[in-house]
Amino acid sequence: MPALTPLGDSALLVKFGDEIDPDLNRRVQALAVLLGSAPLDGVGESLPAYASLLVHYDPLRLEYAEVAEWVGGFLDQAEAAAARPAGQIEVPVHYGGQSGPDLEAVAAYHKISSAEVVRLHTSRTYTVYMMGFTPGFPYLGTLDPRLVTPRLETPRTLVPAGTVAIAGQQTGIYPLASPGGWRLLGRTPLPLFDLSSEQPFLFAPGDEVRFVPLEGADGA
């Protein structure tokens, strides 16, 4: 069973495990859905991550033990419940060139060709395990083991919006221009975060994602 611990005086952390694992993450997402469907007065939002769920609550209205009891009541159901049906999203990507300045370095690191990096990166269906960092940033996993690459030692101060990148076992897409330490493979023209849209976020936790290579001036 997952472990419940306080994180400060106004949040409770439900920890399901220590690895990136689709089954663990499905339980995280299921618990988030269950908590959202039966709100307790004084409980704020819940933040799903790879293998944990952070539950915010208002310490003016609730004590830790009350929140723990409420969350505890859903753990069995979360085990049993399947998360909502996942959306499937195809993400077109210009690999390499200015769009993906680290493509060749990643290929060299693994002693394979750039084309092989692209082939491996587009060969899998990834799960949106969690969202975080900046609005709309999907943490996708897991990479083919032949692509697992450490983060940059010194992060870039500016990564353009739409950049597709990898770090460790993860791949992700920067929705906004921001600093970043991941290895940049390419860029997608899809907006990940658009406040003028009724659905401001392209992804939701639990979605499935495939990358599709785009040919073009910058293409691989």
Binding site: G8, A11, K15, D18, A49, S52, M130, G132, Y139
Partner: peptide
């Protein structure tokens, strides 16, 4: 693994 984080952490 990255996990949720509140202000004050």
């Amino acid at each position: 693994l990255s996990e949720g984080m509140p202000p004050g952490a």
